[in-house]
């Protein structure tokens, strides 16, 4: 009834009886190319027309340089802040039970759901010198709106969910028996936390930090209203792209965009490296 032989072979695709591979993969590749790859390639082509020296020239223009410095510098500090508080929030939401926990858990995703322009004007009105928080800050001599402090606040807002959501599932997966073992072996709670619980979370915290950083560097909508956009002080790189475009300075816009793209891909690579390391070291991502 059955006469058969099967030999393992190297091939592009493992054979399968499930239909539709050609159709769905073909469609996927076509759409991906048209929507994502081709337009991105246009930027790369345009930028390579400028050459490294062309990009360098734009980047070292004082106004561009200061915008890049603001974007990267503030985003770094904001991502750090988001990571610290995000980890606390993730810990509290996963480990403690208290009334309203689920609602607070849902609130964390607000920056994902709230359009950036809405967040932007809300933050601007809150932190303006006559705003609810801005007025209080003014009393202690802090100018939030229209300074890098405002940019920092918007970036924390936008980066926070990344910091929380990358760490949260890992905290949930911590094996309680490991903590009990540590306690039985005589460790204090603080010792257990710092020596047993936290180290495996580091890759996730770093990943969350990198995601928040990348998001902060590229963010536009929630920042421009609160930033004041003073050249050399509180002007961010994405805004400068918009300005260059409105001046039909395509080369300038492309140069800044290329630098930003390079940074976000480096960040992506960094995240992949963390995860590869984490898989080797801890057996999970």
């Amino acid at each position: 009834m059955a006469v058969a032989s099967v030999r393992p072979k190297r091939r592009f695709r493992q054979p399968s009886v499930i239909p539709g591979f050609g159709l769905t993969l073909g469609y996927t590749l076509t759409v991906l190319s048209l929507i994502v790859l081709f337009p991105l390639a246009a930027l790369v082509v345009r930028a390579s027309g400028l050459g490294l020296s062309g990009i360098w020239e734009v980047a070292t223009d004082p106004r561009v340089f200061s915008a890049l410095r603001v974007s990267f510098g503030v985003s770094l500090i904001a991502a750090l802040t988001a990571s610290v508080f995000g980890s606390i929030v993730a810990w509290v939401l996963t480990r403690y039970d208290f009334p309203g926990r689920r609602i607070i858990d849902a609130v964390v995703d607000l920056p994902f759901a709230l359009p950036t322009a809405v967040a932007g004007i809300a933050l601007a009105s809150l932190y303006a010198p006559n705003g609810l928080i801005g007025a209080q800050l003014a009393k202690v001599g802090i100018e939030a709106a229209y300074t890098p402090v405002g940019i920092f606040i918007a970036m924390v807002f936008i980066g926070l969910p990344f910091a929380v959501r990358t760490v949260q599932p890992l905290i949930a997966e911590i094996d309680r028996e490991v903590e009990e073992a540590s306690a039985i072996l005589g460790s204090t709670r603080l010792g257990t936390l710092t020596k047993v619980v936290l180290p495996p979370l580091i890759p996730a915290v770093l990943t969350g930090f990198a995601l928040a950083f990348a998001r902060g560097v590229g963010e536009y909508g929630s920042i421009i209203f609160i930033a004041g956009n003073l050249p050399y002080v509180s002007e961010i790189a994405p805004l400068l792209i918009v300005i260059k475009l409105s001046e039909f300075d395509y080369a300038g816009a492309c140069a800044i965009a290329t630098i930003m793209l390079a940074i976000s891909f480096t960040t992506l690579l960094f995240i992949n490296l963390i995860q590869a390391w984490s898989r080797r070291r801890f057996g999970y991502v």
Partner: peptide
Amino acid sequence: KFQFWGRDLLVTLIDLPFSVSPVVSGLI
């Protein structure tokens, strides 16, 4: 549903727009 060569790369490429600044997305 299928195993094929380059699958991980394809996933990374699909994810690309998430790591591109919105302004750059418009620019391209």
